[in-house]
Design a protein around this nucleic acid. Sequence first.
DNA 1: CATGAATGAGTATTCATTCAT
DNA 2: GATGAATGAATACTCATTCAT
Lengths: 227, 227, 227, 227
Amino acid sequence: MAVDSRERVRAAAVKLFAGKGFHGTGIRDLAQAAKLSSASLYHYMGTKEELLAGIMRESLERLLEAATLVSGGVADPRLRLGNLVALHVMTHAVQPDETRVVDNEVHALSAVAKRTVVKLRDDYELLWAEAIDAGIAAGAFDTARPAVTRLALLEMCSGVARWYSPRGPLTLDQLAAHFAELAMRALGCAGIGGELDLERCRTVVSQVWKVKLRGTGGPGGAGPYPD
Amino acid sequence: MAVDSRERVRAAAVKLFAGKGFHGTGIRDLAQAAKLSSASLYHYMGTKEELLAGIMRESLERLLEAATLVSGGVADPRLRLGNLVALHVMTHAVQPDETRVVDNEVHALSAVAKRTVVKLRDDYELLWAEAIDAGIAAGAFDTARPAVTRLALLEMCSGVARWYSPRGPLTLDQLAAHFAELAMRALGCAGIGGELDLERCRTVVSQVWKVKLRGTGGPGGAGPYPD
Amino acid sequence: MAVDSRERVRAAAVKLFAGKGFHGTGIRDLAQAAKLSSASLYHYMGTKEELLAGIMRESLERLLEAATLVSGGVADPRLRLGNLVALHVMTHAVQPDETRVVDNEVHALSAVAKRTVVKLRDDYELLWAEAIDAGIAAGAFDTARPAVTRLALLEMCSGVARWYSPRGPLTLDQLAAHFAELAMRALGCAGIGGELDLERCRTVVSQVWKVKLRGTGGPGGAGPYPD
Amino acid sequence: MAVDSRERVRAAAVKLFAGKGFHGTGIRDLAQAAKLSSASLYHYMGTKEELLAGIMRESLERLLEAATLVSGGVADPRLRLGNLVALHVMTHAVQPDETRVVDNEVHALSAVAKRTVVKLRDDYELLWAEAIDAGIAAGAFDTARPAVTRLALLEMCSGVARWYSPRGPLTLDQLAAHFAELAMRALGCAGIGGELDLERCRTVVSQVWKVKLRGTGGPGGAGPYPD
DNA sequence: CATGAATGAGTATTCATTCAT
DNA sequence: GATGAATGAATACTCATTCAT
């Protein structure tokens, strides 16, 4: 029961912070969404800001762990980056609320908490940077401004959280593959889509976030974006 | 004096809404930033929400006008999209606060205001969609999922507002050219950078936003992002 | 405790609204009078206007119920009106704050609440109108302008709330009897004072308003009005 | 022009204070109704409270003067009181806003201003008291509680300001005559309506308030109260 | 004569948080 | 574990009033 409540609070916070922003979400909103009184809320959380910080830290830790799992030991920089892109896109598609909170609510953090979060984010981006640099060093990638390109690709992939719908025409794998292809093109590198380990990415996302995924299952109907 | 104050309020709101979010910005913050008492603020604005809505509407109207100016009458879809990309990137680089407010604070709008803003955004995106569709129809572009690619590119370009610094190593033109190149690659289309009318984009941004631009001037020193 | 506070808030509101008017009473005044912080006030009320509307509605419902109790089943229109007058006067003497709020603060109500209150007031006045009309039809009453006379009598009786003091020389019964006599004279009808059921009126007032009445007890000393 | 504005302010204040109460009327409401900016308002008034006090004092002075004019030198107490009643009713019918402000907004006055106003009110009521006492002494009036009866009659007559409409079926003279009759009945004194000097009352009201009256002209159509 | 600009103090209401039960 | 009660501080916004122009 306690665990249940704790999770309900966490889940409510993620959804509300994503939808209305940290400052736009009141403690009463949280209580209502978690089916608890606002006083009871405080059995399961510290302050509202600690709740936010916990969500962000945990989300980034999961992303970082997942990224390590899908990129570690992959020698080919192209595949390494491809997996990173696929994972990032899948994560943002499957957990849009968590990722939007991470991406949009840093400003609401205290200086101390911000430091932690920014550090995690930097560690994560380093994986991308290393893959890109390695690809350039190996002559596989071609881009005049690696850092700019990295930022461009990260933003492109993070944007998925803002528009992807699981009820749309794309499966997770199709989505991830398309973005991996876009990334490779951006880096001047012909399609290696067939060699991506999408299943591994899916499995990792599923494990790290403890969610079930519909896998490669077909589309679920007309979504909010046309194709 | 009145005009001055009105503009100070608007400018303060843009900066604060961008930095701390609409709900994170108090009327006292606004007053302090505008060097006015909180009561005096109300000589120059309606409600706080109307202030936000005004900023968003005006920003989108300017973007839409600018986009029409740089894309209208450009027959080649590649050049048309290239100009749209360059303009979008320049706008987000030059006016990062306005564009971040537009991109991040829609949730704070009332239903009525939201409708207006979403309509403007849709009109704007239509210009991109038409250029991409025309490019595909003409055989110039190659992408399996035009709509997904469009969203990916838009997010990629909008992200510029989150990290670009005018004090960094890239000039506006270099930035815009790089993103145009990324877009063309994403659409499977060889570099046409040389034919982009970057000067026209710069002029339009400058006029529409009534700001002076450093033009193609060299880099200003080390920025917050490495290259 | 909760009930206590709720009642304290209601009682404070009645007294203050009566004395200084709705708009003249601040939320801080209410809080102070209810011995609560202004924030705590909101545990026991909705908005300030809902508090007012609740007071007015409840007061009118009680008055209407009481009037029905003392006039229902009384065949003789003279006695029926006499009882209505006695009840009205007693109510205004015993609950001057509630009745003054009802009589003076309608303008502070929102359109919706106003409708409800006016409807109740109309229902109540209908009892008077019916008794007067019946008395005329029966030849017991004689007045050229029944509607005008009704309004005149109502205002005359309501005025009691503005000047009567329980510490004055008149008991409730004496007051009520005097006004019943005035009403009968106004309707050209010889004194029937002896037949009025003042005790029933007193009992009904006492029950409906849940107050103890000194009954027919003698005067308590010199009051604010001379006799 | 100045005089015009001053009168517009006064007129606006009377109407608004009567309709929404002193505390319910903002300085901006006054400015709008007087077609002036809120700053300009202060060319024609002191503080808002002084404006109210001025209105109340002046209204009471006019009423007192008028009452003196219609009752002075009238030997018969029945006629004297009859004239006072007729004048009071006419005044409340013709100037409902002024009289309602006087009757309802005393609580908004400062202690000093309240003293003046209460003194004037007492002086005025003394005229009624003297007439009633004289009538009793002369054996013309019969009432057990002269003071209570006086208060009852005053409230009855003042109520006219709350419901009379000049567009209703009663002319001023009919209204005044009816109330004089009610008063006489209340005082146990047969009809002396025919001897009332209604024309004199009308003239005095007209002069004192500087208004034109439709005189005894017929009814203007269906009004808000039936007869 | 008229007003836009300005504001300190105030408005009603909500905030996140604590605590006794 | 759960919550009704409570509140100091904050919220967005309005008040009556002044004054320079």
